[in-house]
Design a protein around this nucleic acid. Structure first.
Lengths: 249, 249
DNA sequence: GATAAATCGATAAAATTTTATCGAACTGAA
DNA sequence: TTCAGTTCGATAAAATTTTATCGATTTATC
């Protein structure tokens, strides 16, 4: 029932948020959930959530009940490719690179990092989180042989173009770039930049706007801010009335 | 001349991309740049870029010449708050946490990480990238005293809600969360989730779509894909005709 | 100088995305 | 069984975002 084409780009970006929330519901033992409940928890519009769910769900929601939690988890996972397995390589086994390598969450999202590359003789031959670290000289060849189309760049900014070129040479068609620099890629190669400092700065900016909007009673003030402002969307989710219960104490 | 209100959310998200590209132009010695050139380099629409630049630029662009590179860098930086300095704390000095701590790019974006917290006695007392790692027990108190409103969560998923609650207790009003879990925050607290695996999965999905669309001639195939498809936007930027020259050797 | 090419700003059209509204369907309680 | 309340799907309106078009302006070239 899921027609790929009906999913807007923005909707796609909301799905991972739903996914995590649904996993939590499942942990709590909930077997079904209504769109309005999800909307409240995530600070989104009811209709929007309902539309998103309708677009991915394999079975329609039941009035007065909602959607099956397990069904939704499966549908969203399927839709986002979490059940596939795409191989990827990582270039740059520095701090960030190794953090990603040791992070176990990628397999659950359908991506398997099969190898890491670096140019530092010190780290070549080591391994991190079960991923071998190889010499960057072997990168293009290995990518070709293993038919890898997905690359991650975690090298310093001044080496990023070089790493990028090696990946392209190896036949990689999609690059996830953590270096804060503009990369040149040939036509047909997808490039997604992950500019972490910029993300944080954006959050700081929004925070600043808020504080400015409601007078600033800094030192030791109690929370006075309310009305999460409906301008939010995307990765950001304010809670409108998330009372439910806290699940950690 | 920059009217904060005229900047759409999507435009805000494009600015960091412009920023990096402009920095590169400055390194190359370019003193001015035209909107269409930026658009080509970033795979965006001319008019869109022109509108974005007009919204932030302090001085109008000159026909036949474009905008001043230095001016734009300053304007965008100002607009994104890169010239401010907002203090932040980080919770969770694991791999990802320490990667962020040792990453020098935050200061340049107007955010200063003043301290990190962890509960592991082994790491408490150490420091990473000049940032002391303190006991998480002291978190709320220190945040209150230092009047910190920005928090970063890099703890494992099953401890994230706990970390979140401590930050809120400390008066933090905006939280950047790396744990792949849905967090409950009170009204008025901004929450931005950074779900790295989900981001990569999204890229993998788009790659899969592409490969499916143009037949799949895997093993050792030359690049045959063309026409970057105009569906792209946001963090993603395909190149339409980036010939210029490569700047790395 | 005059002319051609390219860019700008502005306005408006198109596309996408979000939000509102309606009747129908289902559940649980009287 | 009946009724009240909630949620669903669908349609349509509103808002936002992207793209196209046009005349005006400036620079480079002849």
């Amino acid at each position: 029932m899921h027609k790929d084409t009906t999913l807007s780009l923005q909707a796609l970006r909301r799905l991972p948020g739903y996914y995590n929330y649904l996993l939590e519901l499942r942990r709590r033992g909930e077997s079904s959930v209504a769109a309005p409940a999800i909307a409240r928890a995530m600070g989104l519009n009811e209709v929007q959530v309902r539309k998103d769910l309708a677009a991915v769900s394999s079975s329609p929601g039941k009035p007065r009940v909602g959607f099956g939690v397990a069904d939704l988890i499966d549908s969203i996972g399927r839709c986002l490719g979490y059940h596939n397995s795409e191989d990827a390589v990582l270039v740059g086994a520095g701090r960030m690179g190794r953090a990603l390598l040791s992070y176990g969450g990628f397999e659950a999202h359908g991506v398997r990092i099969v190898a890491a590359f670096d140019e530092d003789e010190q780290v070549i031959g080591q391994s991190e989180g079960d991923h071998p670290i190889l010499s960057v000289k072997r990168l293009p060849d290995i990518c070709r042989r293993m038919n890898i189309h997905l690359g991650i760049i975690t090298v310093p900014a001044d080496r990023a173009q070089e790493a990028c070129d090696l990946l392209v040479e190896g036949g990689v068609l999609a690059i996830w770039n953590f270096a804060p620099i503009h990369l040149q890629v040939p036509q047909g190669v997808l490039l997604q930049n992950e500019n972490l400092p910029a993300q944080l700065a954006l959050l700081a900016r929004r925070l600043g706007e808020r504080i400015a909007k409601f007078g600033e009673e800094s030192a030791g003030a109690e929370e006075d801010l309310r009305t999460p402002s409906p301008e939010d969307q995307g990765e950001t989710e304010p809670q409108k009335a998330p009372r439910e219960e806290f699940h950690h104490g």
